[in-house]
Simulated scan of single mutants.
Amino acid sequence: MKLLVFGKTGQVARELQRLAPDATYLGRDQADLMHPAACAAAIAASDADAVINAAAWTAVDKAEAEEAAATVVNGDAPAAMARAAAARGIRFLHVSTDYVFDGAGDQPFAPDHPTAPLGAYGRSKLAGEQGVRAAGGKHLILRTSWVVSAHGANFVKTMLRLGTERESLNVVADQIGGPTPAAAIAEALLTTARAMADGTPGGTHHFSGAPDTSWADFARRIMAEAGLSCRITDIPTSEYPTPARRPLNSRLDCRAFTAAFGLPRPDWREGLKAIVKELRS
């Protein structure tokens, strides 16, 4: 499989490089998602038979103030990429998010649940999904949540840093979801790319870590795994205001993905062990 990946320094892209070192990876200096036509041209000029878009605007709060730019990166660029891939008849895999939902209720969201994003980031990602589908090619949209790794900025690294600096932390306890190791997402993308080559249909799927938990309980597990004595105190979302509203319910129903591609939800507790071990080394 000749693979072209948009993204080089992000969490999922870094893990893809470990698993598929022979793929071609395009960083922002080679394919800036602020310029969708250039991204499409890169696909048109490539001899790849599958494309993964692992690049995105991930600054959720910043998107509230810069929605137009976020929509170019998360909406217009994936749509242009998908059209270019469809024109060549090759597979296009795109990473999306639970933020396309409103976070209501306490049941896991199925892939066909109506979307209703709460803010600019979710709207920009939904625009990307719609553009990928409208392109009409062979595609996979993989929605995930709470991505963590030893790379970049994420909750695990933030908690480890603060846990060494403070005796206690207040952490939101009424947002529930599945932390997802970037390494597992990378494996899922490669598995689906291969399966689609053999005729397995793509479409829209969910893939997140298990078991579902709160940010506060996730933080406690991080402290325990790292041997830190920092105490975690539960607080409601209302006591931690942010520019962008966060969904209270980020649970994702991943059963269809497991049935189609044979991959169960990854155990984030095992993923956390690997992340802490890597950071220590």
Rank of each mutant, 00 (worst) to 15 (best):
R265E: 14
L263K: 06
S46Q: 01
T233W: 00
G122I: 04
A274T: 04
E165L: 15
F207E: 07
A59I: 02
A42V: 02
T242P: 08
T115I: 02
L4A: 06
R28N: 07
L16N: 11
D22H: 14
V5K: 09
D106P: 05
R91G: 11
A31C: 14
F261I: 06
L190C: 07
R88L: 05
P21K: 03
L26V: 06
H35Q: 15
R133I: 11
S281K: 09
E66N: 14
H139N: 10
A31D: 05
R251V: 05
A104K: 13
D29S: 13
N249Q: 12
A69W: 08
M196E: 07
A41N: 02
E270T: 04
D212Y: 10
H35A: 15
A37N: 10
D106I: 07
S214T: 15
Q107M: 08
A77Q: 04
I90C: 10
L19V: 01
D212K: 00
D32L: 14
I185C: 06
C254Y: 09
A224Y: 03
R246F: 09
R194G: 03
A259Y: 13
V72L: 11
A54Q: 13
A193Y: 08
K125C: 01
T24H: 02
G75F: 02
Q17C: 03
M159V: 14
H205K: 09
E239D: 14
D22I: 01
R265Y: 01
K8R: 15
S168L: 00
A259V: 07
A70M: 10
D267P: 07
A219D: 02
S149W: 08
I52K: 00
A256D: 15
E165I: 03
D112I: 00
E67H: 13
W146I: 03
A50M: 15
T158G: 10
R161A: 13
A188P: 06
T24C: 10
N53Q: 06
A69C: 07
A182P: 08
T97H: 09
I43K: 01
L263R: 12
A127L: 03
K62W: 12
R166F: 10
M196P: 11
P247Y: 13
P179V: 04
S208M: 14
P264E: 12
S281F: 00
A184E: 12
V60A: 07
H206G: 02
T58D: 06
S229P: 15
S124I: 04
S149C: 08
R194K: 15
A244N: 11
D106A: 15
D22K: 14
A153L: 12
V5Q: 05
R265M: 13
G227H: 02
G163L: 03
A59L: 12
F6D: 03
A55Y: 08
A195K: 14
S229K: 12
H205C: 05
V171W: 06
I185V: 11
L252I: 11
G163I: 07
S168R: 10
F207Q: 05
R143A: 00
G137I: 04
A41M: 08
R166I: 00
M34C: 13
A150R: 11
D32W: 14
A84S: 07
F207N: 09
D61I: 09
A87I: 05
I235V: 15
P236S: 01
L33K: 04
A38M: 07
R221T: 07
Q107G: 04
W268K: 08
L263D: 01
Y121S: 05
R143D: 00
N74D: 03
P181D: 04
L190T: 03
G163N: 05
R251E: 01
P266G: 08
